[in-house]
């Protein structure tokens, strides 16, 4: 199925969706969003591209293998539980660190964000893994 309209749309939608997925991931802690939704968007961006250009072409533009992305996600999620052990808490307790402090602005990052990043990768990876192999002819 070659559709010029879909191809042009997919080419421009993909970066937009990727950026959007990151935004959704980051803001998830306070507003609707999070790793799961973000991961689905991440995967959807590539699936849209694959629908327009075919799986082979899409895979060439990928610099990672979806299986590895899933594994990375699981590892990151697991690793996010470890800092708590060193802090003397139970495994997977949320730990927060202030990275940048200023009167007007402070950047506070915690292991839950890292965990969400893990979910984000795992969901995106598994989605692509399944969809690509189903769409491949």
């Amino acid at each position: 199925m070659e559709s010029i309209i879909l191809q042009i749309a997919a080419r421009h939608m993909r970066p937009l969706l990727l950026v959007l997925s990151l935004i959704v991931l980051y803001r998830g802690h306070n507003e609707p969003g999070g790793g799961f939704i973000g991961g689905l968007m991440f995967g959807a961006a590539y699936i849209l591209y694959a629908m327009a250009f075919g799986v082979k072409k899409t895979q060439k533009t990928l610099f990672f293998n979806p299986i590895n992305l899933t594994a990375l996600g699981l590892l990151v999620a697991l690793a996010s539980g470890i800092p708590a052990i060193f802090a003397g808490d139970l495994f997977m307790t949320g730990e927060w660190y202030t990275f940048f402090e200023h009167t007007a602005f402070e950047l506070k990052l915690g292991t839950p964000l890292l965990f969400d990043v893990g979910v984000y990768f795992a969901v995106a990876g598994m989605l692509m893994m399944v969809m690509f192999s189903l769409m491949e002819e």
Binding site: N30, G34, I67, G73, M92, P112, F115
Partner: peptide, 30 residues
């Protein structure tokens, strides 16, 4: 420190459950 309760439950209060879930879906996908 999160206002999105659903997300806080997923990634903090019930993080271990979520870890189990993403492991399961990854295995299913594999």
């Amino acid at each position: 420190f999160g206002r999105n309760i659903v997300n806080v439950i997923l990634v903090d209060f019930r993080a271990l459950d979520t870890l189990g879930e993403i492991t399961v879906i990854s295995i299913a996908a594999l």
